[in-house]
Amino acid sequence: MIGMLTALLSTAVLSGGVLALASVGEVMAERVGVTNLGVEGLVALGAATAVLVAISTGNPWLALLAATAVGALGGMVFACAAVLVQASQVLCGLSVTFLGIGLSAAIGHSVAGEPVPVGLAPVTVPVLSAIPIIGPAFFTQNLLIVPTYLLIPAACHWLLFHTRHGLNMRAVGENPAAADAAGIPVRAIRFWYVTLGAALAGAAGAYLSLAVIPSWSEGMVAGRGWIAVALVIFAGFRPFNAAAGGLLFGLISAIGFLGQARGWPIAAPVLNMLPYIGTLAFIMFPVVFRRVGRRGGEAPAALGEPYYRSVR
């Protein structure tokens, strides 16, 4: 029983990291009022880039850096169209998803199926890893889980809720006209935080292809980017909740993996449906029961809306 729980939590922590990174990034973009539906494509692009760089240089950290940079670049393409030109955010996001999936398939074609020689290796923390269940799950993982679950969400939370700049960011997301009148550079803030979010999505891709499934294959992202977008709603647009949500959904997919490994009498494809059905349930229930629930967790008021200075 203990062994099963340990395995379950270990897998959850490992595979939830992809969702945590990508959805914390999306929280930042949505807080400043931009829905980036391109996350799925950016994660795919990051994953393919990371594998390419890891195979050619043999350095996983360089691969992570390259994937993050490629994610940021993709985010800038999206932000140029959706923030600077103010084209439809839904369309720009979908096209970035198409672009990312297509480009990653093209550049990853030559290395498809090849194992990554140098993934992000697990590190065992002395003493702490001896704690039952939690120890092996959190303290024998790759180093990336520390920034994923702790440092990045903490930094984002501090930035958003404890700095003047974060107040400006939230103002841009809630009421860009008022923010503009107060002298806050609406477009610049939107541009750079969308880029930051996209960079995190690229990093999530690297995490996926270096630590979770150490190789590249078409379709390996399998909707993780979309689940990350859905998680943002579930998390009430807060970075720590998004990271915790990533862990929760890691747990849901871990149940599927465990079922396959232990030969439960349920077909593998049916078990694989769990994360998607779980996401659906989790984004529907809070909204359906919001009226009786607590306040808070609403979307930023100007989410998805372009801001034209000349139209008041």
Binding site: L91, S95, V96, L99, G102, A105, E218
Partner: peptide, 13 residues
Amino acid sequence: ATAVLAITGLVLL
């Protein structure tokens, strides 16, 4: 084959 999605994405963007 999936590269055609990139062209589609470019056109859409």
